[in-house]
Design a protein around this nucleic acid. Structure first.
Lengths: 141, 141
DNA sequence: ATATTATATTAGATATAATCTAAACTTTCT
DNA sequence: AGAAAGTTTAGATTATATCTAATATAATAT
């Protein structure tokens, strides 16, 4: 995704393409590892012009609201973000806390009877367990 | 679940049945609304003997580790807890943030190819959208 | 029953994450 | 240019969770 594409995706959602907002999008495109707001803030601040913490949080919220970014539903202390778009599920390691992507596949919806009057916008599937690094192998850890 | 059953489920997992720990379990049994740690702390403190905040957090962590309690994977600020056991999925309202249960149904596992060496312990399904109270009806909100 | 010991609890301090505030700045529109 | 809407800022504030090390308690052994 090049500069122009980022600009258009922002403007297409009614968001101005500011330097700071652009930087958040660019970082998320280049870093698929579900970074926290703090990580994004630091990374964006390594380039000019500097962006304040409040702006980073504001922008993340705006981007989520605009449907360009998704907050991953993991229960750790800090929120984690990734680009909306290429759908995938998540796997969270019990031991090291790492969040990994799991290839997307279709999840059946609940019966409309059990859903009642709720309006479903999206669905996230989170697996928990041990990641390859933390999984016990031959008498280690 | 009566007093003796709570005691046994704690001791069966190697946890002492202390007054504070018991109170957390009892509260979760009586309140299925995915309370936050703060809510549990306050509720437990309304009865004697008082329990400190640290103890509430310690106990919740121990209970999760022991498999008796589950931390719900929602991305809001505060962690939310419910009893492990009667399985269900979750629905989080975009607008009011309420967490509701959705009747449990079987979710297909990912292809073992895409799972690699990961060891899956559990899987949570989270829906997002608008709850019945917040869903738009006839020209309101 | 009492002593022992591993486990659990405590208050308060501290760390971490997110939001608020109100002023200043930018962009877009007229 | 002027006005209006949208955005950013630094720093303060709030919310959430964990740490510390002294003390208390529950389960076990004697």
């Amino acid at each position: 995704m090049d500069a122009e594409a980022i600009k258009q995706s922002l403007e297409g959602r009614g968001l101005r393409c500011t330097t700071q907002r652009y930087a958040v999008m660019e970082f998320l495109i280049d870093h698929k590892g579900h970074p926290t707001a703090a990580e994004i803030f630091e990374a964006v601040n390594r380039v000019n012009p500097r962006s304040s913490r409040a702006t980073t949080y504001n922008n993340l919220r705006d981007l989520v609201k605009a449907g360009l970014v998704r907050e991953v539903a993991v229960e750790g202390r800090a929120g984690r973000f990734d680009l909306e778009g290429m759908r995938h599920h998540h796997f969270v390691c019990d031991r090291c806390g790492n969040v990994e992507d799991v290839e997307w596949y279709d999840v059946p919806r609940p019966a409309s009877r059990s859903l009642g009057k709720r309006i479903v916008r999206e669905c996230q599937l989170i697996f928990r367990g041990l990641c390859p690094k933390c999984a016990p192998r031959r008498a280690s850890r």
